[in-house]
Design a protein around this nucleic acid. Structure first.
Lengths: 353, 353
DNA sequence: CTGAAAGCGCTTACAG
DNA sequence: CTGAAAGCGCTTACAG
């Protein structure tokens, strides 16, 4: 390292450590008032090009980064967005999180994570404290907290913008990202009847998820279009967990009239059905077709690969973030996402000997 | 709703919306100076019990929550911790995240998520901007960014506390959470030789992960204790992905001297081996034993259930957070975590006919 | 045990 | 196109 580089480095570090460069330093070094520096920070027009360049050069040279806390305090806002979730599916959470961060990229806004437990009665108070404490500029609600009307009301009262990600429209357009699980369920139903299945079963999620009902409703309609109905006793309530899928799968496969196909409300439960089928020596897809929902990584890794319904989760996250930052675009239109059926090896026609 | 309750509600909302109650309001209402309120907020002793109670009552009544931005600006710190990660495993990320939040619970400190891409040359600059902008009180580094010495150096220069989660000791004790992957690898090796395997294969992770080397080193030592060596050509470099596990699995199972057992560097790759075995009509565990690493959810769902090595990931996250908040505990001792071998259905003795 | 003054690093009106 | 003054909601020294 040459002496010059060493000197540079020392100079540089002196300003980065311990508090670092402030707007006052930049103003002094660029020979302007701090108000003008502020204009450059905030991309306000009407700063002479040469002045702007001079200021930007100083900022770059000293690695100046305006402090979010100070900006926020002065302007009565913040540069923080929150994600509030109680979703048990890690892949879903991470994908959504990544999508949100995509949407937040290069905006200087960062993302604060807040898992909650809706069953605790203090949960609304906790969210309130969280939002107030960090003065969040907005919050993105994942299913199923996104479906809580009380929470939405609280956020409105706190004057905190929010976007709800849910399977049905629950709010005004700028506050919604809709996933249309009905469509996904219907696609599953259509697929199975198209293969020729007449005797089908379903394992649903917990009752307090909207997606549970949407997926089932779509599925039933998809079957009905072809004149197929679901026998009473061929519908089971699961919990979106592997274990519940296993238990319900055992149940369904032990019925006197065994279904030739099962649509599980999510992939976790579908894999439970796989296990049940193996126990009972029921072959997939020869004796039983299985359809899941979510396209989790495991869906592609099991054998046979699971036919499932995919949601563009990451894109949904990005849309939610963009809507939060600019809620004023195209009023009246929701950010809508249609799921897509991925046909893989777990479904086949029932005529299979 | 009675008139009185309505009045309460209106009063209450007037103060929560639009900026809400400030320290000045509380001071006025409790008839003290704001400095005294500040003492209560910060749990400073030597406030008369009755004064304290009066202040706390007012705070509760008006839902007062001190603003992190203002506190941070005044005290030159912040109430934000960052997690910087480039780990491709969603379950790992979410579990660690949850653990960190466990450790942060009720401290008034929140967690900001920052995924990065080490391969981008701007990545250090991005982290610098992130840390400076939000004036983070500390940062938790996940593997493999945790292994980047340059990053650690940058954070030191920025005067930003950090904790590195890694499979080997890379830093002073208060800055480390160590997972001892060597021990996990050794357990896998011991298990296989104990079953009687003599001809074993290994699929490693990418070279730039420390865990890759630690797991392999431990595995080789575990075998060596029983006098078993790994044949040249029985070790493959994977990428911690399903596809690489599949490719390497095909390779290994096509060797003239086929291994009777394979230790994959993680579960994803182990599932790739499952697929390869199925293609080649190699039965697990009759013809081939497989051991993974991580205990991902899928490991318990596949058939046969995968023998794997589990790390207490959530506890690790909690430890990291606690160390960040109170680095001054028991100097000289690392937060250390030992992995545990979970024996399931994918391993058996090689004598199986 | 309690308080008055100054200041954290910015932005907001308001001028010019 | 640019700037001087005041203030955001707290805490930090410093007194008493």
């Amino acid at each position: 390292m040459t002496p010059r580089r060493l000197a540079r480095r020392a100079d540089h570090e002196e300003h980065t450590a311990r508090g670092g460069v402030t707007i006052n330093d930049v103003a002094r070094l660029a020979n302007v008032s701090k108000k003008t520096v502020s204009r450059v920070i905030n991309d306000v027009p009407y700063v002479e090009a040469r002045t702007r360049e001079r200021i930007e050069a100083v900022m770059r040279q000293y690695n100046y980064v305006p402090e979010a806390q100070a900006r926020g305090l002065a302007s009565r806002r913040s540069f923080l967005v929150g994600m509030v979730y109680d979703n048990p599916n890690p892949e879903y959470v991470v994908s959504l999180q990544e999508g949100i961060l995509d949407g937040l990229a290069n905006t200087g806004v960062d993302l604060v994570a807040r898992p909650v437990d809706q069953s605790r009665r203090s949960y609304l108070g906790e969210v309130r404290a969280f939002v107030t404490r960090q003065k969040l500029m907005g919050v993105i609600l994942f299913p199923s907290v996104s479906e809580d009307a009380e929470l939405a009301q609280l956020l409105s009262a706190l004057d905190c913008t929010y976007v709800r990600i849910a399977s049905v429209v629950l709010d005004e357009a700028p506050r919604m990202v809709v996933t249309h699980d009905y469509v996904g369920g219907r696609a599953a139903g259509r697929h199975l009847v198209a293969l020729g299945h007449q005797c089908v079963g379903h394992i649903s999620g917990p009752a307090h998820f909207r997606s549970t009902h949407e997926r089932l409703r779509g599925f039933v309609d998809g079957l009905a279009e072809a004149g197929v109905g679901m026998a009473t006793g061929h519908s089971r309530r699961g919990e979106y967990t592997f274990e519940s899928g296993l238990a319900c799968g055992r149940d369904l496969l032990s019925e006197r009239q065994r279904p030739t196909a099962i649509f599980a409300g999510n992939d976790e439960m579908a894999l439970g059905v796989y296990r049940a089928a193996r126990e009972l020596r029921v072959r997939i897809p020869e004796d039983l077709s299985v359809v899941g929902y979510d396209d989790s990584p495991a869906a592609a890794r099991v054998w046979p690969a699971l036919t499932t319904v995919r949601l563009p989760v990451r894109e949904m996250g990005r849309a939610a973030a963009q809507q939060l930052l600019a809620p004023d675009v195209t009023p009246g239109r929701n950010a809508e996402f249609e799921p897509r059926l991925l046909v893989r090896g777990s479904t086949a026609d029932p005529g299979h000997p």
